Amino acid sequence: MEKISPHSLSMKNESSSVAPIGASAQSRTIAQTMTYMERLVIELSNPDLRENALRVLSKRNELSQELAHLLWNSFGTIAILLQEITSIYCTLLPPTLTLAQSTRVCNVLALLQYLASHSETRMLFLNASMPLYLYPFLKTKEKSPQFEYLRFASLGVIGALVKVNTKEVLGYLILSEIIPLCLSNMEIGNEISKTTATFIFQKILFDDDGLAYVCATAERFFAVRRVLDMMSESLDKQPTCRLLKYIIPCYARLSNDRWAGIALANSLPSVFRDTIFLNRVREDPTTWEWVKHLQENVRKNQEPLVAGGGENNDIVESSTSGQ
């Protein structure tokens, strides 16, 4: 039998105990962190400590799953967050919002994004109609940084909701008139706000109910069409890949509707006939597939309009008569 020296035995014992000690230390660190987070959530109820608590909690995205539970289930916390949001409504019109006020509420909105992202708090968040508290921010038109930050943070919360693509979420947003707010932000926002708003709109449009809603009336269709055309023309001058990835699929999706497809075939934006622009788009295989899908639908829909073709006929008639 091979002899084992006391030294080698000692080394084996030492190495075998490293993992449990490391795991134990890690567990203690996690426990200490969560204890600290719990204390910060409690501090939200103290007006003197709230601003710092909001700032720290909003930056702990890596703990968003744990914090979503903690925020929703702690007594009075949601009411405090809503109080913070509603307290600045009076600064929206006339526009007197300060950068400090905007930053503080953006920290609140970061916490709401935790709730909107979590599978167990998402529907609770929605059933409490909490997105409606953000709509006043999305209705603002001021382009100063404090208003832009507020709109972008609000869009981030809605964006977290639509990432999962559930019928309940999309149905709620359609009925709550989020589409006009998205269009407004696609029109007036900076690049990152435009991108987020277009992402939300695309998610809704790719739902059958969303497409039906947009194409139900000529007014809705042309409101969408006007904003998409404006964005497309601006991208012709200053192309942005991230925006293109959302705008072009929106056109392609609209073309799936019979009457909207005919309207697009009659007056597709000039950028889609621009060789330089199309060559640029071709560099992204996924986006180029959407361009081909759009072109195919346009070819199919380039045919004479049959009189009395249905109530959506007004979309096509408006298009052929110059809207």
Results as ranks from 00 to 15, higher is better:
69 H>M: 02
283 E>R: 15
35 T>M: 11
108 V>I: 05
290 W>I: 00
270 S>W: 03
300 K>Q: 08
274 D>H: 13
275 T>M: 11
81 L>E: 00
157 V>E: 03
258 R>D: 06
42 I>T: 10
219 E>C: 02
19 A>C: 07
169 V>D: 03
214 V>T: 12
265 A>M: 06
65 Q>L: 01
39 R>K: 14
86 T>E: 15
237 K>Q: 14
44 L>K: 03
139 K>N: 02
276 I>N: 13
250 C>R: 03
282 R>W: 13
56 V>D: 09
258 R>M: 06
196 T>F: 05
309 G>V: 08
201 F>L: 15
286 T>N: 14
101 Q>C: 07
196 T>S: 09
37 M>H: 10
72 W>E: 02
246 Y>D: 07
241 C>A: 15
182 C>P: 11
307 A>N: 13
57 L>V: 06
78 I>C: 01
121 T>P: 00
247 I>W: 05
139 K>R: 13
199 F>K: 10
316 V>N: 04
154 S>N: 12
268 L>C: 05
93 L>Q: 15
293 H>R: 15
148 E>C: 09
182 C>D: 10
74 S>C: 01
200 I>Y: 05
210 G>S: 13
97 L>K: 06
252 A>V: 11
318 S>Q: 06
315 I>E: 05
50 R>Y: 06
185 N>Q: 14
317 E>N: 06
128 A>N: 14
136 P>C: 07
255 S>M: 01
179 I>K: 07
290 W>M: 11
126 L>R: 00
62 E>K: 11
185 N>V: 06
244 L>C: 13
219 E>D: 12
115 L>R: 00
87 S>A: 13
86 T>K: 14
171 G>E: 08
86 T>H: 15
226 R>V: 00
211 L>D: 08
223 A>R: 08
249 P>H: 02
256 N>L: 13
78 I>N: 00
7 H>A: 10
177 E>V: 06
13 N>A: 12
248 I>P: 01
60 R>Q: 14
13 N>K: 14
230 M>G: 03
102 S>Q: 08
40 L>V: 05
260 A>K: 04
270 S>F: 06
15 S>F: 12
226 R>H: 02
102 S>T: 08
135 Y>I: 00
273 R>L: 08
321 S>H: 10
311 E>R: 11
281 V>T: 11
161 L>Y: 02
35 T>C: 07
251 Y>H: 03
252 A>N: 07
87 S>H: 12
203 K>G: 00
290 W>N: 10
132 L>D: 09
228 L>S: 01
220 R>Q: 09
302 Q>H: 09
